[in-house]
Amino acid sequence: MIKGKAIKYGNNIDTDVIIPARYLNTSDPKELAAHCMEDLDPEFKNKARPGDIIVAGTNFGCGSSREHAPIAIKASGISCIIAETFARIFYRNAINIGLPIMECPEAARDIKDGDQVAVDLTTGEITNLTTGRTYKAAPFPQFMQELIEAGGLVEYVKERMGAQG
């Protein structure tokens, strides 16, 4: 179970504002987190607390493919992203680096900035603890849950190769 404060953004949040290209000369998660969202919301790095949840509209993560984008968000302490829809490359990049994301249009529209939110990744249930309302997102398929729990694709593959001896 994930719990945190909602940080709300609009539609079409692109990878260039999630982590501007001028910082892509590093893949150090801490360094990327220091610049996460800065062209859209310079206050993000100060207000994001460990466990917080980004809630956004449609097409989150559109634009250039860069795994730095979900890495920057994850390293900022964000525990989950709830959006109406995700851009497909960002969606899979997030899974591959072990950042939970949920598509749930009702929750994404309803939840307000600052609400306390709980997410159950196994069942796909989202609860707005501030209003008491619950929502249902499609849970991840089993293999994706395992991948996120392992901490991403690289760790997942390492585990599997280790298991094979």
Partner: peptide, 27 residues
């Protein structure tokens, strides 16, 4: 992608034949 070689300063405008246009994209 705003990395190098003629990136845009504050207030500059580019007419580009690339395929992406986001805030801060080219500088």
């Amino acid at each position: 992608l705003g990395g190098h070689m003629g990136i845009l300063a504050k207030g500059e405008r580019a007419v580009a034949t690339t395929n992406r246009n986001f805030v801060g994209r080219m500088g």
